[in-house]
């Protein structure tokens, strides 16, 4: 699966669009396996760049979600409470939270699709 060019990526395997939608990458969902639980902040919550903002659990593992940038949560994807497997099926189509960015220039420090893809393949030792 290729990584869409319309967004930025983190080394912790999250993606974020310019309008502040945040999700996890195909690589992340594939490493986790069957996702069974997603815990997200409520609208109004503040998230801070590089800090955890939620949790995603597969059958086997618990992983933290890291904020790509700072901002205020405007929406959480409540459908994931009952159907977390949507993240496996369409990782780049399913957002977890939407935020109002505190400082849009923070996006510039994140990885492009090409850089992220390179990072992932190096991490896998290919």
């Amino acid at each position: 699966m290729s990584y869409p060019n319309d967004r930025k990526y983190t080394k912790e395997h999250e993606w974020i669009t310019a309008d502040g939608s945040i999700g996890i990458t195909n690589h992340a969902q594939d490493s986790l396996g069957d996702i069974v639980f997603v815990e997200l902040p409520k609208p109004g919550a503040e998230i801070t760049s590089g800090k955890t903002f939620g949790t995603v659990e597969s059958v086997k593992a618990v992983s933290d979600l890291y904020a790509p940038v700072s901002g205020t949560v405007t929406a959480a994807n409540d459908a994931l409470a009952t159907a977390p497997e949507q993240v496996n099926k369409d990782p780049h189509g399913v957002w977890m939270i939407k935020i109002q960015l505190k400082d849009p220039s923070e996006l510039n420090a994140l990885l492009s699709a090409a850089d992220y893809e390179k990072f992932v393949s190096e991490e896998a030792g290919h």
């Binding site: 594939d30 396996g33 069957d34 597969s58 059958v59 086997k60 496996n88």
Partner: peptide
Amino acid sequence: AAIGCGII
């Protein structure tokens, strides 16, 4: 998952 597997 591509061959119908995955833990579940």
